[in-house]
Design a protein around this nucleic acid. Sequence first.
DNA 1: CCCACTTTCTTAAGATACTTCATTAAGTAT
DNA 2: ATACTTAATGAAGTATCTTAAGAAAGTGGG
Lengths: 398, 398
Amino acid sequence: MQRGSFQWMKSLNKSIILNKIRTSEPISRAQIAKETKLTPPTVGTIVKELLEQQLILESKLGESQGGRKPTMLVLNTSGFHIIGIDVGLSHIQFVISDLSGKVIDETEEVLAEEVTKEDFLALLTNGVNRLKERHDSLQFIGIGVAMHGVVESESGVSIFAPNLRLRNIPIKSHLEEVFRMDVKVENDAKAFALGEAWFQGQINHRSMVAVNIGRGIGAGIVIDGKLYNGEHGIAGEIGHMTIDINGKKCSCGNHGCLQTLASGPAIAERAKELLEKGGESIIAEWINEQELSAELVHKAALQNDQLAIKILHDTGVYIGIALTNLVHVWDPSIIIIGGGVSKAGDYIMTSIKETLVERTITEKAKTTLITISQLGSYGSSLGSVALILSELFEPTLL
Amino acid sequence: MQRGSFQWMKSLNKSIILNKIRTSEPISRAQIAKETKLTPPTVGTIVKELLEQQLILESKLGESQGGRKPTMLVLNTSGFHIIGIDVGLSHIQFVISDLSGKVIDETEEVLAEEVTKEDFLALLTNGVNRLKERHDSLQFIGIGVAMHGVVESESGVSIFAPNLRLRNIPIKSHLEEVFRMDVKVENDAKAFALGEAWFQGQINHRSMVAVNIGRGIGAGIVIDGKLYNGEHGIAGEIGHMTIDINGKKCSCGNHGCLQTLASGPAIAERAKELLEKGGESIIAEWINEQELSAELVHKAALQNDQLAIKILHDTGVYIGIALTNLVHVWDPSIIIIGGGVSKAGDYIMTSIKETLVERTITEKAKTTLITISQLGSYGSSLGSVALILSELFEPTLL
DNA sequence: CCCACTTTCTTAAGATACTTCATTAAGTAT
DNA sequence: ATACTTAATGAAGTATCTTAAGAAAGTGGG
């Protein structure tokens, strides 16, 4: 446990003030003192330090409250930059972000079908180098990496990356050695969750869950602004939550996992079954030319195809049931939905919400907020940026 | 957020030292300094204060490590006492506990079929008074109350107590007014969880879940020694986790809740169904004289009745599936099982463990510990004691 | 336009509680 | 006995918050 010392006290107060500025900018010294219960002189000296470190800036004067005008303080968002990396299925996305989560520039590397560890690490180095060279005047404070599969975040090693068919890639140590800056690696669903917390003002929620539904289903859990990993690093694996003990077999070996009912492939699968049973749908005409996919089902729904609409509706019900379980176990204040399925928008969201309200057992729980992610294609990249930011804004242990 | 101040620093360090003594007694000042990274003089002055407050005692000298013998410090377990109350179905249990969780004395009040709020509060007052009078020399620091149903812990109000058919009982304010001491009220499953954490040395687990399976099924979640409530106070309601979307209807209105498969009544129900289908069992002979209950099924299993054994085995599988979901969402380091079903011991436990190992998706997760509660009939009472203790041992906000 | 009053921010002195360093206390080992 | 360990404490030093006072910069009424 962290012991109390002078440095710790200082670091704690500094972090409190910095975060207050971040979340409430522009704000005056006096206002900070009121809201944090720190005394004005304490705020003064710490603000002075933050100004010297260029982490914040003094902006123009604010409105008078009946006396001297306050000098407002703002975060120096463009004073430092962070490189965020999202390792996707076929591409690696690299972004440069400022402290506010604004993307300044981006680039990409293509993932070949077969890559070795060395190939992969070289791709990471290349992408980062390209961005750094384009912006050599900027000061970078760290690199965040969002990686699919199983990641051991403390060591920054990708334990197992199914899509790359690679194991034990030492991402953190490699990048730290090459670029000599702070590197954080995390599972993409978890990084995504942290990103939502940081850049969507969701950080105020004591407990939030971000669910990523695409080819697979994963969730990241953020408590008090920090990622919750669980004891064995699998907290949030709701794709393998059993909701139908007599259901279909899942790749994990169990039956009736959420993933067998509501992932992208599962949607296509259900459509196929319904068509085989003789269901009427325009999808039947399309699949001669295209492969049956979740996107196709969505496309059909947009043309008011009843079978497609029902499939999406049912998908929402399944997700809703899983989220109800989540609420009954974890009880977060907000649930954010992202990933491919979220593009199907209202067709699915409506039934998710209805299901949740219908099934949760108390009135209060029915008020749990559910929204769709607003970060778009930068979701996981900005999440990896947030990995670095969350460290910057936290008190440093001493 | 808590700001750093001198008092906070002191309070924090005091709490660190007190907890170190509690968990590692007997321990010397020097050893505390080493393990907490506090300096010897700091430890010295704080220990002096704790001695003056009578919270700890100096015991005999320890073994020499090659120099002067250390004076060992121990918790003054019998210096202060706490009253714990467990409101059960038909009885209210009152216990006096010392700081180590040892029960010094106990008493009971019987709950009539119909009680008013006033009756109920009077019963609480009576029980506490009886214990206090028997031990008027002891110094009491608080009263903890474990209450079934929905409890709002901040205000200490029982929002809804289904068994008493009462709503909005102001337990905390009533007891605080009468006895002028600190009162904490919490849901019984949650209190039980905290009790396990405190008195079974489980406090070291960063994250633990205690599941109470009896007439209903509830769980309490303890993170870093503190109860996790969730945003709307329903975290841990795993009784209403859906694991079979096509299953039986539950009292909550949904289908396939764990409670419809694995609670005491559900066990009896399943036995009844199997008998009606023509299953062979000695239970069939018994139910002419006795009502069919989970206890009866257990009794039959003890006589090697195959149908009963199968029912209990299946119950374990259902619980195992729910716990697997819990592991995939929450990923605690230990799960503790208590309540009536835990009395069925090995018949159920074996299949719970097997199911969990079979279904969890990573090797690490398969190592999640599962044990049966050791607190026996004092489970919830001692949990309510822990409500008060956890406050005593925590730094006080300033 | 001056003066009293606010509000903001800073400076200076004071208080608190940790740290460092030195010392005493009480052992063990040769 | 002497030298070396380890344990505990005392005294001085120091970092950092707090209190109190004051300077800076505004508002508004007469």
